[in-house]
Simulated scan of single mutants.
Amino acid sequence: MGVATLDPGARILVLDDDVEDAEAAAGTLRDADFRADSLSDNAAGLTVDSFLADVCAGYDALVCDHVLSRDRRFGFTGAELVSRANQRTDRPLPAVLLTSHRGTDQTGSISRWLSGIPAVVDKPELTDGIVPALDYTVRELRGDFSEERRCFLTPIEVLEVFTTGEVKRARVVVVGWHMQKSVWMPLEPALAATGLNAAQMEGRWLEAKVNCNAKRPDDLYYRDITIAPDLPEDWFTS
């Protein structure tokens, strides 16, 4: 699975439904000797796959804001687009997510796709953060994971399930991350992977590959989720 190196002169598409923010990000990339185009126009009717195949054709990388719903211009979030771009099987497109919404209600909709998002840049830190984020994304797509993004198999205890609100989620204990602290886990990937419904999920033990060296719970991602085998009764006391 080849990933192009982002040499000076690489073509980068910046997508943001705010025209000024899109051009500001593109200007930062041009200052770093990339060829950057900004896009804020209507993409109504385009799916993620068609956007990647049609609009992103010919580009070497993508920088995308998370919230693209203003005036219904886009039918997907930036997190979904970035994740799908990085995980394309034929030709991954290195993609970085921009957001002003870390630590807000939008965090949940980002977490849903975080396994495919190597780097998230807070918009206030765009000027200094965007180029290093692109560099790291290319490295991770080649298999060079940072310590905080490297994942390994761990048990997960599902404490509660919440199906209301914009993003369905579960309060869980990720044993490999912290055995005494619960965190929020996006629910839909677990439901899809296990075949369980929300009512069946509560109280279950799962297994997943998780980046347990992440410093913040919002940076945890989950891959290869399965129903865990039954644990010995004395597992926590032995």
Results as ranks from 00 to 15, higher is better:
Thr5Gly: 13
Gly9Arg: 06
Asp16Val: 02
Asp17His: 05
Asp18His: 03
Asp21Trp: 01
Ala24Ile: 15
Leu29Gly: 02
Phe34Tyr: 15
Ser38Arg: 01
Ala43Tyr: 07
Gly45Pro: 03
Thr47Trp: 07
Thr47Asp: 09
Phe51Pro: 08
Phe51Lys: 10
Ala53Pro: 00
Ala53Ile: 00
Cys56His: 02
Cys64Trp: 13
His66Ala: 09
Ser69Asp: 14
Arg72Tyr: 08
Phe74Pro: 11
Phe76Val: 07
Gly78Gln: 08
Glu80Gln: 15
Glu80Phe: 05
Leu81His: 10
Gln87His: 15
Asp90Pro: 00
Arg91Pro: 03
Arg91Trp: 04
Ser100Glu: 10
Gly103His: 05
Asp105Arg: 13
Thr107Lys: 00
Thr107Gly: 15
Ile117Val: 09
Ala119Cys: 14
Val120Lys: 11
Val120Gln: 12
Thr127Ala: 15
Val131Met: 07
Ala133Leu: 11
Leu134Ala: 02
Tyr136Thr: 12
Arg139Gly: 10
Glu140Phe: 04
Asp144Tyr: 06
Ser146Tyr: 07
Glu148Arg: 13
Thr154Met: 06
Ile156Trp: 02
Phe162Ser: 05
Thr164Ala: 05
Glu166Val: 10
Val167Leu: 03
Lys168Leu: 09
Val172Arg: 01
Val174Phe: 01
Val175Gln: 06
Gly176Phe: 03
Gln180His: 14
Gln180Asn: 13
Lys181Asn: 12
Lys181Ala: 15
Val183Tyr: 03
Val183Lys: 02
Glu188Gly: 00
Leu191Gly: 01
Ala193Asn: 01
Gly195Ile: 03
Leu196Asn: 08
Ala199Trp: 02
Met201Arg: 00
Gly203Cys: 04
Arg204Leu: 06
Asn213Lys: 11
Asp219Ala: 10
Tyr221Thr: 06
Arg223Asp: 14
Asp224Ser: 04
Asp224Val: 02
Ile225Val: 07
Ala228Lys: 05
Glu233Met: 11
Glu233Phe: 13
Asp234Gln: 04
Phe236Trp: 10
Ser238Met: 12
